[in-house]
Every structure is written in C-alpha cells, then in structure tokens.
Simulated assay, not measured.
Amino acid sequence: MKDLFFRRHRRLRSSANMRALVRETYLHKEDLIYPIFIIDGENVKSEIGSMPGIYQLSLDNLMEEMTEVASLGIKSVILFGVPFEHDKDEHGSGAFHHNGLVQEATRLIKKHFPEILVIADTCLCEYTSHGHCGVVEGGTILNDASLDLLAKTAISQAEAGADIIAPSNMMDGFVAAIRAGLDEAGYEDIPIMSYAVKYASAFYGPFRDAANGAPQFGDRKTYQMDPANRLEAFREAESDVEEGADFLIVKPALSYLDIMRDVKNNFNLPVVAYNVSGEYSMIKAAANNGWIDEKAIVMETLLSMKRAGADLIITYASKDVARWLDEEGKEV
C-alpha cells in the first residue's frame, strides 16, 4: 500500500462546511423569475389541473399573489395573458390592446410593487382564434406579416410599464422588428429577453392548459425548433444577438442542458433557462405520489441548469424554492 499513489478527492467532502467551502455552483433568489397567468373575469383563482400549486388569476386577485411573491424576496415575474375565447381574433389584437391583460397587470404591479421587475411575454398565440403565434393565411403562418403585430405588442407592453420584453413567437426577425419598434417609440432602454432557442417540445403540454393556447390546427414545428438539432441553436442565438437581444432564453431546460452550455460558451449575454411546465408537473406528480423528495429533486434540477450556464431561471417552483432557500440560509 505504501507504494500506491492516488488522489484523495474525499478530503474535500469530509464535512458540510468543507463541502460548502469548495462548492462551485449556487442558486440565489435573484436567479428566479416567477410566471403568472392573468385571466379575464372577476374573483378568479383557478388552480391549473396539470400544474398543482399554479393558478390562473383575475386582476382583482393579483395583488394577493404579488404580496406573497414580494414577501418571499422574488425580484422578477413574467406575465402571460389568458383572455376570454370570445375576445380572441385572427390577428390576436388583444395582445397589443392598451387595456390588455398583461398591460393592466403590469400597471397594477408597478403601482404597488415598483421594485419588482415585470417581464412581459410578447406573443400572439394566447390571443389568436387559431392559437398560432403569428398571422395565418390559407393554413400557413406568415412570418413577415406577424412582425408588425409583435412590435405593436411590445410597444404597448412597454407603455404599460414593463421592465423587460420577452418575445416567444420564434418568427424570423422578431428581435430586429421589436427592437426597431421600441426604439422608434422612445423605449431604447427597455431590454429584450429573447426566446432565442425554443424547441418544439412535448414538455409544453401543461402550459397550454394554463394559457388556453393550444393551436386549433397543425402544430408549431414550422417555427419552433426540431429537438434533434444542436447547430441550429447557434444560428438562432447568433441572429438574435446581432438583432439586439439583451438576454437569451433556452426553452425547455432539462432536456437541453447541452444546448444551454453551448449558448453560454459562445455568447456574452445573460442566459435564461426556462424550467417549463412539463418539467414542473412531472416532479409535482411524483412528489404527490410520495415517490421522490420534492425539495431535493427541484434544487438538484435547478442547480443543474445553473451549472450548465444559466444565469437566471424561469420556474413555476419559484415560491417553493424561495422558501427552501430561506431554510438553507438564502443560497444552496
């Protein structure tokens, strides 16, 4: 045995304090972005069946939710609008209406919680009668005709007080069109958090229950990315950087950690992981059946995203994570 040489890695794992001393990756409350679904109507707080603990909220119930968010120390929220079906039309005009759901929710939050960053999801699908993210003609999603509507939506959200615009539509040129529209309207200082790398994923199922936004025909594979492709992510992200994006979202997160690391290694912008609805719901379902330790699995999952290069994480587990971080002393 005296002649053996080998490295003793366990020396740095000998106690909790030793492990903390050499820990490489941390999760902080400031990393969390909490999604909120704003629905038409009054006195609505409707739990989403496929997303336990997540609710569709009418504007009159938003302040209760925001009070909890603020008390937990969560600094950022992202807003999604869920209009009545009869208010939807072919061009998604509710998305850019002055008194649209996201616009009104933004005004309310900025009035009562001005310190919280409001990120506005900028898309048309929740507002279109056909459920697609752009203008449809003859069964085809028209790219260029959609850009003006997306820019109008972004401008109306900025006018309402949104701190960050987050376009999720995946039309070619959407960042360029929105950046030009914001600048022309005098919102040069409003950043764009682009859904730069967004795959056509089966993990979005519960979100479509939450947003009532499933397409009425076909699918979104002509504009969202093929899950088999890696190099395409470089092209998409590079285009958005050139067009003026300030953040780059990778969506989904768990099955695309390799892509997240690629984006982080190749672009000098903050990277945002979207821990999507299907990822959240699978953990919730397993936890509710007593099959897993929910806290341990969620924390390990989010740390994997940070380790893969995420600077920020959009996650439905934000409130739970904030509580767990308090238990652990603000970081883990």
Rank of each mutant, 00 (worst) to 15 (best):
S156Y: 08
M171L: 15
L182A: 00
A200R: 11
L147I: 12
M170W: 12
D183T: 15
A185W: 03
Y187H: 11
S201W: 05
Q157N: 03
A158G: 06
M170D: 07
A158W: 13
I155T: 09
A145R: 12
Y195D: 13
Q157S: 04
D189A: 15
S146G: 08
G205V: 03
I192E: 04
T153Q: 11
S156V: 00
S194I: 09
I192L: 08
E184W: 00
A185N: 06
Y195V: 02
D148S: 15
I190R: 04
D163P: 01
I165W: 10
A158D: 09
E188L: 05
A180F: 08
L150R: 00
I190H: 00
S194M: 11
S146W: 11
S156F: 06
P206Y: 14
M193A: 09
A154C: 12
A154R: 11
S201E: 05
D148R: 03
A211G: 15
Y204S: 10
M170Y: 10
Q157K: 01
I155R: 05
I192S: 01
S201M: 05
S156M: 14
A160T: 02
I164V: 15
V175D: 08
Y187A: 02
E184T: 14
A210E: 03
D148V: 13
F207Y: 12
A210D: 07
M170I: 05
L150H: 07
I192A: 05
L142I: 06
P167C: 04
K152T: 05
F207E: 09
S146D: 06
P191N: 06
S146M: 11
Y204N: 08
E159D: 15
T153G: 01
T140E: 15
I165H: 08
A180G: 07
K152H: 07
F174S: 13
D172H: 10
Y195A: 14
D183A: 11
P167L: 10
A151S: 14
Y204Q: 11
V197Q: 02
P167G: 02
I155M: 05
Y199W: 04
D163A: 12
A210N: 03
A151N: 06
I141K: 00
V175L: 06
A185F: 02
Y199N: 12
I190T: 15
A176Y: 13
A211E: 13
R179G: 02
I141V: 14
I165G: 03
Y204D: 06
A211V: 15
S201P: 09
A200V: 09
F174Y: 15
S194T: 09
I192K: 07
N169W: 12
A160D: 04
Y204V: 12
